[in-house]
């Protein structure tokens, strides 16, 4: 069966809240009912039918034809199934999702995978700030699942991350891995700014190194660690290819301002 498709009629004038367009929610709706779901964010009260042409099929797989940076909350709280976006997407892509697969061909906005607990996100382009991070006031960011961003990540990626794995194919913006609690992040490029500020625990592989390390990060020497080999293998199974193979790497520990049990590995 082919996917349930939302074809964008044109660039929307306002931000669109797509949080209701997830498989478990749409499973029992007819096309006419779906077309009447509210998605607007202004007093105009836009409905799905105002923004998209809907072709009904199996809601287990949802496809957005033609994306837009204004399509927010795609895949928010999704529990299973698949959503594919043929283009860019807006803020809070896959926020708080617990299962399933979420793919964007283009770039996505801030808070991609925010506080997600499970499932898999891939982003073909770049992502905005606070990849996997918490929304305002929340105490934890990503707590499970995997995110693969093929391009660059914005500022403060993996903020307050607690569990799960992230792979960034490009660089990370300023102050990545801030307040990280645990989890694993691999970056093929470099980290701008000062990575890991106030991180407690967590493991980071930075193939391109960092612009600068805070004075509360200390060099722990070059290590040939079994754990790196195991990690490379395990992450390889998740992401296909990872940019490190378990060869010896230099370990930098921090942030000693808070606990100091975080580890940043850079090529030796």
């Amino acid at each position: 069966m082919s996917a349930l498709t939302f074809r964008l009629k044109g660039e929307p004038e306002e931000r669109i809240d797509c949080s209701s367009l997830v498989p478990h929610h749409l499973a029992n709706f007819s096309p006419a009912e779906i077309a009447r779901l509210p998605v607007g964010t202004t007093k105009r009260g836009l409905l799905v039918g105002d923004v998209f042409e809907v072709s009904r099929n199996d809601a287990g797989e949802i496809r957005f034809e033609g994306g837009s940076g204004r399509l927010d909350r795609i895949g928010q709280a999704m529990q299973g199934g698949v959503i594919r976006v043929a283009g860019p997407a807006g803020f809070r892509f896959g926020r708080a999702m617990t299962g399933g697969e979420l793919h964007a061909e283009g770039s996505v906005g801030d808070l991609c995978g925010s506080a997600m607990a499970g499932g898999r996100i891939t982003v073909g382009g770049d992502c905005g700030a606070r990849l996997g991070g918490p929304d305002a006031g929340e105490m934890k960011g990503m707590s499970g699942g995997t995110i693969h961003v093929k391009g660059n990540a914005g500022e403060r990626a993996a903020d307050r991350m607690r569990r799960g794995s992230v792979l960034v194919g490009g660089d990370c913006g300023k102050d990545a891995f801030s307040r990280m609690i645990a989890g694993t992040v691999v970056v093929k490029g470099k980290a701008h700014g000062v990575p890991g500020r106030l991180m407690k625990r967590g493991t980071i592989v930075l193939m391109g190194g960092a612009e600068r390390y805070a004075p509360t990060f200390v060099d722990a020497g070059v290590h040939d660690l079994l754990v790196l080999k195991l990690m490379a293998k395990a992450l390889g199974e998740v992401f296909g290819v990872v940019p490190f193979d378990g060869s010896p790497m230099r370990k930098i520990s921090g942030d000693t301002a808070i606990l100091g049990l975080g580890e940043i590995y850079v090529p030796a």
Binding site: V194, R197, L198, A214, P215, T216, V218, D255, T256, A257, I258, G260
Partner: peptide, 20 residues
């Protein structure tokens, strides 16, 4: 300044740091 305060926090807790 942020680095310096972080250093003070590490120093208070007796954890290692660079002098910055």
């Amino acid at each position: 300044i942020g680095d310096a305060v972080a250093i003070l926090k590490a120093a208070l807790a007796g954890r290692p740091f660079h002098d910055g």
